[in-house]
Each structure stands twice: as C-alpha cells, then as structure tokens.
Write a protein that binds this DNA or RNA. Structure first.
Length: 320
DNA sequence: AATAATAGCCGCCAGC
DNA sequence: TTGCTGGCGGCTATTA
C-alpha cells in the first residue's frame, strides 16, 4: 500500500515549497519500485487558491483527508501573525493523534505551533522568523540554526524554502535508507544531501542594521580589511572603547559576537574567491584572514558540507 | 586526531 | 534610581 503524503493547500501558501514537495513525492520513478508515495493535495480553505506569487492551485482532496495521511508536509504559511482557522488546526491535531508524521517547511512551523504540536519540543524555522516565533511561542525551544530538526513526537520542522528539500530527502532517507534518498537527490540534480545539523546560511542576517549604529564605520572598515589580524583588543582600541564595552556594543549592533561575525564575513569572502578565482586554498585562507587552509576547510564544511575542492567543483559545474 | 596555548566571551560588580 | 561603562576572573571555543 502506498505511503500517503498529504500536502495542505491554503490561500497564499508558498508555491515553491508546494511544488517541490509534489515533485519529490509525486514523481513516478519506475526504477525505484520501493519508493511508493501517493501524494494528495488537500484543500484547507474554500475559494480560488493562489500561492504567494499568484499561481492557482487546485487540490484534489480536502482537509478531512489529512487524518488518513502517513505523512503531512505543511508548506510555508502566509503570515507570522495570522492564526490559522480551527478546522485546519484540528485536522493537524487529529492527524498527529492518529499517528501521522508531520513536517513543516519554513513558516509552515507556525501552524504546527498554533496547533500545539510543538509544545515542549525543539523546533526550527527560517531564521528571519525566529524572533516572531519566539515571541509567540515562548514555551517552544526554537533553534534557528539547523536546516531541519526532528522533534521527539514525530514532528519535523525546517528552515526556509530550499531546506524543505533537504527535509523531504531526510524523510525519504528515514523511510527507504540513505542510498535511495541519494539516488533521488541525484535525479533531481540536487548537488548533495545536506545533513539537518548543517547551519542555515547566516551572512545576510548580521549586517542590515549594523551600519546605522555608532559602530557602522568600524564595521565597514572591518569588511574592507578582513585579511588583517583583527583581534578584539585592536578593534576595541580603534573604536575607542574598552574590550568589554566593544563586545557588548558590537553584539547590540549585529546580533552576534565580533568573532562570529568576522568569521562569517571571512568565510563569505573566501567562498567568493573560491568561486571566481584560481587562487590556492592556502592563499585564499591567508587573504581572507582565515589563516590556514585547514581552518578554511573546517568552516566551509561546517556551513556548506563541502570541502573547498568540492565547493569549487560544484560552482564550476554551474558557471565554468 | 589529540593536544596545548591562546583568544574570545560573559557574568559579576563597582563606579560614574 | 536607572543605565551605561569597563575591569576582573574564569570558563569555553578556536587555533595552531
């Protein structure tokens, strides 16, 4: 009997995540007979359903079908403030009660949280929504770092958009083993199966507000001098602040500690150099302030899961 | 892969 | 009082 994967559809859902889930679980793969998923899209709200970008979707099933699903994949919910209607929340609760595995992509974790399915669990979501999530659900332990996270109660949450693909592959892996998941990943031409523990890409989250603070000029200077020996003492002196105050002010401005922020920037620069130049890894490490190639390698694998060589190869494949 | 040295970080608290 | 500062001590993370 097929393993039923239900995808609830509502007004303003994420079309990308909806389609990605359909593609992964719905595509017929005759050469992988053991992979026997039956996808059922389920209408949660009445009327003409459009994705956040206006695509019209026409689900086959209804909200009542959720309870019979083996797995439910909840694509991005339209709002971090709007509480979904009770019928949807009840359906999620009933399905969970009945033993369905429930997975959320990106802001899809919000309906799960509203339904109480994440109470006293550890969950994740897109890093941009982390604050909104924590404010509304203080009793849920939110970890904004991983790509996806299996809670203890048969519920899984994941970070933004593409992390949903990693999540879905992880589900396949749980159902049919790593080899099958890898095979599917290869067919979808997804470069690699990334582990859930891999960090969400963080560079973007740290700068936007920083330049409007009193440390703005210093932060700009740091970005232009990543190759220098940037110790806390030197930076504090340059800012005419004590060590202690510098660290505090820096965190207030960027949200992360100086060292974490600088390493993030250095790695980002290193990635650019790996992509666009033929410099040796050691040279890139030196130039970006990461020091040694070993160190560069460590940070790169932590964040992307790829070694420098593989990282280069992956980008060459796209842009020779 | 394990280790030792070093630097970063943070709670605490007194002082302005 | 409140709020920010910054020195100290020591634990933790990072690096070589």
């Amino acid at each position: 009997m097929s393993h039923v994967v239900a995808i609830p559809a509502y007004q303003g859902l994420s079309g990308y995540e909806y389609a990605m889930t359909l593609e992964l679980f719905g595509l017929d793969r005759p050469t992988l007979p053991e992979v026997d998923y039956a996808v059922l899209t389920c209408r949660v709200e009445a009327g003409l359903l459009r994705t956040s970008h206006g695509l019209i979707v026409e689900p086959e099933g209804t909200i009542d079908d959720l309870v019979n699903a083996d797995t439910i994949i909840v694509p991005g919910w339209r709002s971090v403030t709007e509480v979904p209607g009770d019928p949807f929340l009840d359906a999620l609760r009933n399905a969970h009660e009945a033993g369905s595995r429930i997975a959320a992509i990106c802001s899809g974790s919000f309906p799960l949280a509203h339904a109480g399915l994440l109470d006293d669990q550890t969950a994740t979501t897109h890093w941009m929504y982390a604050d909104a999530f924590r404010r509304q659900f203080p009793h849920i332990d939110l970890d904004p770092n991983p790509l996806y996270l299996f809670a203890e109660n048969n519920v899984v949450t994941s970070a933004g958009s593409s992390a949903g693909l990693d999540l879905c592959l992880a589900l396949v892996s749980a159902d049919h083993g790593v080899a099958t998941a890898t095979e599917i990943a290869n067919r979808m031409v997804v470069a690699h199966h990334r582990p859930g523990t891999q960090a969400q890409f963080t560079s973007a989250r740290v700068t936007p507000f920083a330049e409007h603070t009193d440390l703005g000029p210093l932060i700009a200077w740091i970005e232009n001098n990543l190759g220098d020996d940037l110790t806390i003492d030197r930076l504090a002196r340059r800012a005419h602040l004590s060590r202690r105050t510098f660290i505090r002010r820096f965190q207030a401005a960027t949200g992360v500690s100086p060292h974490a922020w600088i390493t993030d920037k250095r790695l980002y620069r290193a990635r650019q150099l790996l992509e666009t130049t033929a410099l040796t890894v050691s040279a890139i490490a030196r130039r970006t302030g990461l020091g040694t190639s070993t160190n560069l390698r460590k940070h790169l694998t932590n964040t992307t899961g790829l070694t420098p060589t593989h990282y280069r190869a992956a980008h060459r494949a796209i842009a020779p």
